[in-house]
Design a protein around this nucleic acid. Sequence first.
DNA 1: TAGATTGTTAATCGATTAACAATC
DNA 2: TAGATTGTTAATCGATTAACAATC
Lengths: 209, 209
Amino acid sequence: MNRKVPGPTLMRLATYLTYLAELDAKGVDTISSAQMEDRTGINAAIFRKDLSYFGEFGKPGIGYGVHELSAKIAAILKVDREQGVLLVGAGNLGSAIVAYPGLRSRNFHIAAVFDNNYNKIGRKLWDLEILDIANVKEVNKQLGARIAILAIPASAAQEVAEMLVEADVRAILNFAPVTLRLSKHIAVRNADSVQELAVLSYHLSDQDA
Amino acid sequence: MNRKVPGPTLMRLATYLTYLAELDAKGVDTISSAQMEDRTGINAAIFRKDLSYFGEFGKPGIGYGVHELSAKIAAILKVDREQGVLLVGAGNLGSAIVAYPGLRSRNFHIAAVFDNNYNKIGRKLWDLEILDIANVKEVNKQLGARIAILAIPASAAQEVAEMLVEADVRAILNFAPVTLRLSKHIAVRNADSVQELAVLSYHLSDQDA
DNA sequence: TAGATTGTTAATCGATTAACAATC
DNA sequence: TAGATTGTTAATCGATTAACAATC
């Protein structure tokens, strides 16, 4: 278990897992790195290199056992067990996140929803009661979630992120368009879709735009 | 206008713009690369290097004019003009996207919403009528949108993406957990948040997970 | 002029990829 | 054994960063 796994490798590992789980469900037994390239669009050499950071999972001349490799990658990413997730922000995005079946199917489980709006606190978001963000530390003593999703406006994101860290959250998926400044030990990933759209916009040719 | 701008540079450009627009609104006149680093967390040398792909925007000893630089970056990313966007998928995520004010404020404008579900077609998503995805080519002849957002299940994504390309869309933001296989001339960015959560999950220490 | 900060160079660091010996 | 495919090496490619001459 090498310590220095490249960031892009981790993202690709998650992609491999998506496809392997699908193949496994279909009953496919074995797959080669070249066949994976056909499906994922990721170069076969990169696929093999990515796996090599974690061990040897294939058989020369044969390929990889789909079920076995799927299980191995799930274990590497720690998605082989259920992960509790705190959701902050009971707005439209928060609502879509709670309703999204893709979370459950990949072992992520929204353990609680928080907001700071007193018109929302106490009401329900789907089947979850909306809790006061002021109580997050207290609540998470019971829940023990280590991952949180920030689905709130940029103006509140830094403050709430600090509260989450206080509540023992170690990893944050941030949908707000702001750079969180937190301890280096906290893993943060940004998911600002407007930023993604801006990059796409750049790629339009001038006659298009 | 160099042809070979690194991908990470484009993402950072969008980040700079977020902060510069904010500073500009606050009436800040001038900012140095070191001050930008304080705000964005992005190294000052990288900031200057990123800009250097597009020209010289600063004054030695002084820094950068906030308003001017903001306008320049907006022009580079082509977000200085309104960009029409087709949204496919009138589910919970689609609903959150239409309602998100951050799109409008950055000049992205949802021009039409499509779905393939006959229970939804003809109904409204907020103030937009849900149109039949089968008509996307026809409809976009009028609208002329070049960007689309895919907020549909993975099983339909490839097929719909091909329809979008037929309808002259050149850039796709894909929320479905699937790798789209399209012509190299089509820009695609993936925004699979479950994949992001998996990467965060990896970073949890074993005692946490 | 003195102080500050740019734009760019060059060194470093890291990731991708082709090629191939090892092995099933 | 012959054919296929792995895991790894080494070459290439690309991005980050420190350092500094140029310049306001």
